[in-house]
């Protein structure tokens, strides 16, 4: 049973480490789906830029948080 729980945690952990970041990625994809249906290929540029921006944003936010917690 513990093995199955560990495997379950491992599978979930493959995709989610920060629930907020994962939520933002899903929202970006949902918005892109809508935008692709309405505007076609140009919406892809927006999708890629938003995904790249969230990567920088969340990495910076975690770095700031981590340094505040352990100032040295």
């Amino acid at each position: 049973m513990r093995f199955l729980r560990a495997a379950g945690r491992e599978v979930l952990g493959l995709f989610v480490s920060d629930w907020v970041q994962s939520g933002v990625i899903i929202v970006i994809l949902a918005a892109a789906w809508f935008a692709v249906a309405k505007f076609g290929a140009p919406a892809l540029v927006l999708l890629v830029l938003l995904l790249a921006t969230q990567l920088v944003w969340f990495a910076r936010a975690e770095a700031t948080r981590s340094r505040r917690q352990s100032p040295s």
């Binding site: 995709f15 899903i26 975690e62």
Partner: peptide
């Protein structure tokens, strides 16, 4: 979608390690 979540998680961790945060 799953690959994006998976890949971005690895990339996020690699960025923090490269920057010396983790």
């Amino acid at each position: 979608t799953l690959l994006l979540l998976f890949g971005l998680r690895w990339l996020h961790k690699a960025v923090l390690r490269s920057a010396g945060v983790v």
